[in-house]
Design a protein around this nucleic acid. Structure first.
Length: 213
DNA sequence: GTATCGATTAGC
DNA sequence: CTAATCGATACA
């Protein structure tokens, strides 16, 4: 876990939907002031560049979403509900505002740091949910715009070994995935149940086909 | 200026 | 189910 290299910017320069899929199972790493923390990405949500009313970029550039319109391979971090941060990875060429929201991970390194930040003991709750992901990793608005190919925050080139994952359609778009047995999903329109949280919403028929709310 | 809601979470 | 809590957004 010591000599990990970040994925290059080119990795992100393609449709968010494809980047999202390629991110599943990979290691998300943050070398912060309290040391290295890392997790294996198990759930992602893609926001496409055009015609997606659910995207922050739908109405054009603003101070908040401007990094979404910039170069791929950068972090888009926003503050929401007055208390949570969410981490996105900017995709597609500059000018096309697409990104992938990291929704959940499984701890790979620095779990003790994550526990301290989260105030939670259970490993399953350290990185479950986009707000928890940012909190566990120690990510906030100061990380907005960070270059993922050069900074302390990155996706490792070599994904950690382990398990197979399923790719499924998410409630908002893009895709969701799971590795753990107790995670269930939406698979190409076939409703399953999210054991992690909440009640399942109607699924999409086709991954990559976005819809609002 | 005010009102409303949010790419959420924790708790009852 | 709701409170928390504040920035972004819509509108007068």
């Amino acid at each position: 876990m010591t000599s990990l290299r970040p994925l290059p910017r080119e990795f992100y320069a393609r449709p968010a939907f494809r980047v999202a899929r390629a991110l599943l199972g990979r290691a998300l790493v943050h070398d912060g002031p309290q040391g290295r923390v890392a997790g294996r990405i198990v759930e992602v949500e893609a926001y496409r560049s055009a015609g997606d009313p659910a995207s922050h970029a739908f109405r054009g550039p603003t101070p908040r979403n401007r990094v979404m319109f910039g170069e791929p391979g950068h972090a888009y971090v926003y503050f929401t509900y007055g208390m949570h941060h969410c981490l996105n990875l900017v995709c597609e060429p500059a000018g096309q505002a697409a990104a992938v929201l990291i929704r959940a991970f499984e701890p790979l390194a620095g779990a003790h740091v994550m526990r301290a930040r989260r105030g939670v003991e259970e490993s399953m709750r350290l990185g479950r949910g986009p707000g928890c992901v940012a909190q566990a990793l120690g990510i906030d608005r100061s990380h907005d715009g960070l270059d993922l190919s050069a900074g302390p925050l990155f996706i490792a080139q070599a994904p950690p070994q382990l398990g197979s994952h399923r790719i499924v359609a998410g409630p908002r778009i893009g895709i969701r995935v799971a590795l753990e047995r107790d995670w269930r999903f939406w698979l190409a329109g076939h409703p399953c149940v999210s054991a992690s949280r909440g009640t399942p919403k109607p699924a999409l028929a086709t991954p990559g086909t976005s819809h609002s709310r």
